[in-house]
Computed example of a mutant assay.
Amino acid sequence: MNVHAEWTSFGEGFTGYLARPEGSGGESLPAVVVLQEIWGVDPHIQDVTRRFAALGYVAFAPDLYAKDGQRPEPLAAERVEETKRFLDSLPPAAWGNPDARQQALDALPAEQGARIGGTLGAIFSGDRKALALPAIAAAAWLRSEEGVAAPKVAAVGFCLGGMLSAQLACRDPQLAGAIVFYGAAPEEAQIPGIACPVLGIYGELDKRLTEPVPAFAEAMRSQGKSFDYVIYDDAPHAFFNDTRASYRAEAAQDAFRRAAEFLQRQLGA
């Protein structure tokens, strides 16, 4: 299915990447909020957004870093790409190790190290849950915007966006479903707020995020919530991202199939 995609503004000074089936303008379709990895609404997330639109939905990826169409300088697209290349040069274990990252930064030319260090600080620090605000605004906009007026809205997120997809499930009682690709689970105290089914998709090697999943599943079950999940053998974090060395084609293809089936159940074709 051919899709039309464009950048648009929404809510109070937010922007996002909107994709929908070609020729569906003015038609009310179910919608999917696509929530970014830490890199932002980069070419990969734009491609994923178009893939969900090709399933027959309005798909919308809010840029969680932008305000009034502009990102802070440390989160500018070219700075993020430079930082991504830097992290790709390190062993995966160093990503979450501030000392190892700093040692690698110190080996760079001073100006480059300061530039990348500033972007790392912007990406890895701060209140990430606050980024749920544009996600909530995006879901509300999809329901109410003239020319969209989605009858149902679901969310899917990756990494940072996976955590935010779960947060949206906790904080948006109208959400029809949430898909969490290797994102942190909400706190147990938030579970009573979840009013929709949740699908979790994880990689076995992503221990930090995968090991807590059975406990979250039990907490969801004990509170009468719907949570299904799959953990792919030998798959690392970000195994769905086909632009990264972490990509695992077989797991990614099966995960997309599961996500599409979940959306079919929760949103309809």
Rank of each mutant, 00 (worst) to 15 (best):
A140G: 07
P151D: 04
A260K: 14
A189N: 13
E81R: 14
A122V: 06
A76W: 13
P72C: 05
D228S: 01
Y65H: 12
L105Y: 05
K225R: 11
Y232W: 08
R221C: 06
I179W: 08
D254V: 10
G118A: 10
G113I: 08
A31I: 08
Q223P: 02
L267E: 04
P98Y: 13
A138C: 12
G113P: 10
A169V: 02
G11D: 07
A138Q: 15
K225M: 00
E218H: 14
A178V: 02
E78K: 15
I38G: 05
D228T: 04
N241W: 01
A130K: 05
D42R: 09
V41D: 11
A217N: 05
A189M: 09
V48F: 09
G118Y: 00
G203H: 01
D99A: 14
A217D: 06
E218L: 12
A104M: 09
A132R: 15
F60E: 06
E22Q: 09
F227Y: 10
A135C: 15
T15S: 14
H237D: 04
Q266F: 04
I231A: 06
A235Q: 01
E204G: 00
V3E: 11
G224A: 05
R79G: 10
A53F: 00
A61Y: 13
I231T: 13
T119I: 11
A252D: 05
L75Q: 08
D88R: 03
L75K: 07
P197N: 00
A150P: 07
A76P: 07
E78R: 15
I191K: 00
F239R: 02
A245G: 12
Y247L: 05
G161N: 10
Q36P: 07
F181M: 11
F86T: 15
K84H: 10
S9A: 15
D63W: 09
D127C: 07
G177S: 03
Q103S: 07
G193A: 08
K207S: 14
A77C: 07
Q266C: 05
R20L: 04
L164R: 07
P72R: 12
A154M: 02
L18H: 08
V153E: 08
R244E: 01
F158K: 12
S226I: 03
V34M: 08
R258E: 03
D172L: 00
Y247M: 02
A149H: 15
G13C: 03
A259T: 04
A245L: 13
Y182D: 04
E261V: 02
G118V: 02
L267C: 04
F10S: 09
P91W: 01
L55A: 10
A154D: 02
K152L: 15
R20Y: 05
E188H: 13
C159W: 02
F216D: 06
Y229W: 12
V180W: 06
S165I: 01
R50S: 10
F227M: 11
G13T: 10
V33L: 01
G26Q: 12
P151A: 05
K152H: 04
G23P: 11
I179H: 02
A114H: 12
A132S: 14
D63R: 11
D47C: 08
Y57E: 00
G69W: 12
A100R: 07
V80K: 07
R85T: 11
F262L: 00
D47H: 14
P192S: 06
L120C: 01
P98C: 12
F60C: 03
A76M: 07
F10P: 11
G40M: 01
A249H: 14
D127R: 01
V198E: 06
D106I: 13
N97E: 11
Q266D: 01
R20E: 03
A217E: 07
